[in-house]
Design a protein around this nucleic acid. Structure first.
Length: 843
RNA sequence: GCCCGGGUGGCGGAACAGGCAGACGCGUCGGUCUCAAAAACCGAUGAUGGAAACAUCGUGAGGGUUCAAGUCCCUCCCCGGGCACCA
């Protein structure tokens, strides 16, 4: 009697055997093509969840399949183990963040083992390990040496719940913290930055070099970087007496061609000039009111487009460089200090916001761009001087048209990037009053955090020498373990940590007590895996050059901007430091969808979590792995349902039984039998191998599994319907072995048990080559073609697969059903698609 | 407002380059085995009409191109996501 499929009897056993055999340890082998398969490393938040199961199952199938295809596969794992949740958990359970973190790492490592993931455990790392974070500090020093580190004061995002500042990328949705979802507030603070903006253009341009990335992710990054082409224009400031001074204020505009329509000038409430301009004047009270109101508002209120725009006149004027006109300077709450220069030339006819502001405060709106269908067109087309000072428009419009009331430029066709823009920029450049310019939305990356559980920033504040980097030979700055976060302590509460001496002058100094953003840790871990145990260098260049870039990276869409942008930035800096030879870290990216229950992302707070361990308990890791891949294509969100898992378990049981039966009771028929059932089975074997291969390469794991089910269906039908004396034992065994090989990347334990114990092979199934297939052998000898009359299928016809068009056409026309439908009509046209259909047009 | 996705049976999904819509699985219904149930196995399963053969309809809506449209084009609706007083 066939032994039943019992996942628990085999899964643990093979996990131990694989470990003992070192099955997944790899080294550089120049003789083989390499493949680096990587899933985003987890945060050790507790037990693994279904999202992890999905993410790592996808990676594991790709890694195992690639190995079977003869590649030298690097497939490592580790933990992104610094970060705030550890502190919160420590406070809650009255323990130390390290204790919580490392306990969770062990728990997750055990779960990964139970899932049977093919990791090279020798390369395991955790970003909170001293051997790891010391190199993060080394990177900080190298960045500093290259001028990419800056400490400056500016308005920053502060999360009141996390009690720390955040990078712009970490403020998501409607101005909330990416981690705790609290509303973020602005604070003026001195902080540490990485100058990612120096790489803005390259980060944008190189998106074109990433054909293996989803368009969606590239669009999101391009959006985030936000490049605008335009010009800087200098306006001369007038003094309190109304006469021009030597001082100029620069604005950025994408539409310098509309300068003749500039009738007022705006400053952001935070602009440093504001107080100076109004100090002691009659305008001060109104202006200060606007400034204070803006400061009080949250980012969300402030950025609401619905809101009435508020402003106040400063009493001062600036000179418009193109026409020498003096225009009033206002303070307006809709002007952002963070973007451009914090000062704006207002062109009410062309910009909707300026238009609304002008209407509110009764400022003139002279049109400067008109189209032919505009009622003003005839009147203004040749009009260089300002004649019309207001419009009856409902909304601003100056997208495209000809320039009017624009002095020497009148009549020039214009629009974004058009002729008028180029001409005005050239004119400004000649006079030294402006220049072509590009502005990015991307801001420098704020990397300092006022939290304990992170990588200490290796910097020293010396009262004499200023900011001094910790010398390389004094690294690492070790994170002390005796900080008690349950009492709200940070490094700033520990004098024994921060009291130090200046490495330059030797005088008393204070160590920096902020730690680095955890995203600095995750921006280079993929490189460290190439040489994870190196204690004398961050990595050996030859090793990084062998393995990198990552050939296939897999992770959640939530990192589309954050981690993926930062890692691209780090890699470009590493290239400039000469420690790698490439500019992009991840050649191909797969962003997997979320696993949901009842329409919501599984989360502890919602209480809709399905624990993977329970599923493993019931159906085994293999069924869970295969099922989560079978449910949906990897990039789509999926709705968890348990019934389907039982179905997968059933399928595996059927496959198990089939293989066992083929071994125990092989057919006794002649080799090379050529009855229809045998031929069909032989053909299916080839077709399905080809199908599974193509599907895995296109990440269609669900249809690959469907194809395996089809092969099993064909195989069991054959066994059931064809007598033993007629069944070819060689073919049956070949089908059974093929099925096991196809299943191996998905259900590694079951495949191994069948391969070694049932089919009797010595070697691991995971070291066997992927089965070959032949497209001729996969092709049917006879095909059924559909016969259409006037676009509707009216009959079917079985013909020889390579029958000529004439033969098939005649056969189709001779069908009684066809004759019936074309009776009394004449055949106008016959379309023949080989192997598919014949389409007859008759009227 | 701008930029991406997406909308197919009761459900998850398939249809890769315009060629038979609904593969594969779940569920449901019927059957075999059983004292019974579970498991396993066999069969049916888009809708409507019909005993059946078969016919008609059918991929968010409406138009179009084509012998042929889930797939291409136009107009629009809905859902999800990103960006957004960005000058």
């Amino acid at each position: 009697m066939t032994r039943p499929y019992e996942p628990h009897d085999i899964e643990e056993k093979w996990q131990s055997v694989w470990d003992a055999e070192g099955l997944y340890s790899v080294t550089e082998d120049p003789g083989k093509p390499k493949k680096y398969v990587l899933e985003m490393f987890p945060y050790p938040s507790g037990d693994i969840h279904m999202g992890h199961v999905r993410n790592y199952s996808i990676g594991d199938v790709i890694a195992r399949y690639s190995t079977m295809c003869g590649m030298n596969v690097l497939h490592p794992t580790g933990w992104d183990s610094f970060g705030l949740p550890a502190e919160n958990a420590a406070i809650k359970s009255n323990t130390h963040p390290a204790a919580w973190t490392y306990a969770n790492i062990e728990k997750q490592a055990a779960s990964f083992r139970r899932m049977g993931f093919s990791y090279d455990w020798d390369r395991r790392l955790a970003s909170s390990d001293e051997e790891y974070y010391r190199w993060g500090q080394w990177i900080f020093i190298k960045f500093w040496e290259r001028g990419l580190v800056e400490r400056k004061s500016s308005p920053v995002n502060w999360c009141p719940d996390c009690k720390t500042v955040l990078a712009n990328e970490q403020v998501i949705g409607e101005g909330v913290c990416w981690r705790c979802k609290s509303t973020v507030v602005k604070r003026e603070l001195e902080q540490w930055y990485f100058k990612i903006t120096e790489y803005a253009q390259e980060l944008l341009d190189d998106l074109d070099e990433l054909p293996g990335w989803p368009e969606r992710v590239k669009a999101m990054q391009a959006n985030w970087i936000g490049r605008s082409e335009g010009a800087e224009v200098e306006f001369t400031l007038c003094g309190a007496d109304g006469e021009p001074t030597d001082e100029r204020i620069t604005v950025f505009t994408t539409r310098p061609d509309t300068l003749f329509g500039c009738t007022f000038f705006l400053l952001a409430p935070e602009h440093p000039l504001v107080h100076e301009l109004v100090h002691g004047t009659e305008y001060a009270p109104a202006v200060i009111e606007v400034v204070e109101k803006a400061a009080k508002e949250t980012a969300i209120d402030r950025s609401s487009t619905e809101k009435e725009k508020v402003g106040a006149f400063t009493g001062r004027f600036v000179v418009n460089p193109v026409n020498g006109e003096k225009v009033p300077v206002w303070v307006a709450d809709y002007v952002l200090m963070e973007y451009g220069t914090g000062a704006v030339m207002a062109v009410p006819c062309g910009d909707q916001r300026d238009f609304e502001f002008a209407r509110t405060y009764g400022l003139p709106i002279p049109p400067v761009v008109v189209t032919e269908d505009d009622p003003l067109y005839e009147q203004l087309r040749d009009q260089p001087e300002r004649l019309v000072t207001d419009v009856d428009w409902e909304i601003a419009h100056a997208d495209e048209g000809i320039m009017v009331q624009s002095g020497p430029f009148t009549g020039t066709p214009t629009g974004k990037g058009g002729e008028g823009v180029r001409k005005v920029i050239a004119w400004l450049e000649e006079r030294g009053q402006g220049r072509a310019s590009i502005n990015f939305r991307l801001r420098d990356w704020l990397i300092s955090r006022q939290r304990y559980w992170g990588n200490p920033i290796p910097a020293i504040h010396c009262p004499v020498c200023g900011l001094v980097p910790v010398p390389e030979d004094q690294l690492p700055v070790v994170l002390p373990m005796d900080v008690d976060v349950t009492k709200g302590e940070t490094l700033a509460d520990h004098p024994e940590f921060y009291t130090t001496i200046c490495p330059v002058c030797g005088g008393p100094a204070r160590r920096e007590t902020d730690t680095m953003d955890t995203f600095t840790c995750s921006s280079w871990y993929y490189l460290r895996y190439c040489d994870a145990r190196n204690d004398s260098a961050i990595w050996e260049k030859e090793k990084a050059d062998y393995w990198m870039p990552v050939d296939q990276y897999i992770g959640g869409i939530e990192h589309a901007i954050l981690h993926l942008l930062y890692s691209r930035f780090f890699t470009k800096v590493f290239r400039d430091l000469g420690i790698v030879d490439f500019a992009e870290p991840f050649t191909n990216l797969l962003t997997q969808g979320m696993v949901k229950l009842d329409g919501f992302t599984m989360s502890k707070s919602r209480g809709n979590v399905v624990p993977p361990d329970e599923m493993i308990e019931r159906y085994g890791a293999d069924a869970l792995r295969a099922y989560i891949l079978f449910m949906a294509p990897p990039d789509k969100d999926l709705e968890w349902s348990q019934e389907g898992l039982e179905g997968m378990h059933r399928f595996l049981g059927r496959a198990w039984r089939y293989v066992a039966e083929v071994v125990e009771e092989p057919g006794t028929g002649p080799e090379g039998a050529d009855d229809d059932s045998t031929k069909t089975l032989r053909r299916e074997r080839h077709r399905v191998v080809g199908k599974v291969e193509g599907d895995i390469e296109r990440f269609q794991f669900n249809t690959a599994l469907s194809a395996m089910m089809e092969l099993l269906n064909a195989a069991t039908d054959h066994r059931r319907l064809v007598k033993s004396e007629l069944r070819d034992a060689v073919l049956e065994r070949e089908v059974a072995e093929t099925l096991v090989l196809l299943l191996a990347p998905y259900v590694p334990h079951m495949a191994e048990e069948l391969w070694r114990e049932v089919l009797g092979h010595e070697e691991s199934v995971h070291r066997v080559s992927w089965p070959t297939w032949d497209s001729d052998a996969a092709a049917a000898e006879e095909v059924e073609v559909a016969v259409q009359v006037n676009g509707k299928v009216r009959a079917r016809l079985v013909v020889d697969a390579n029958a000529s068009e004439d033969v098939v056409r005649e056969a189709a026309l001779a069908l009684p059903k066809v004759a019936e439908y074309i009776a009394g009509k004449s055949v106008r046209k016959v379309v023949f698609v080989p192997g598919k259909l014949v389409s007859i047009v008759a009227n």
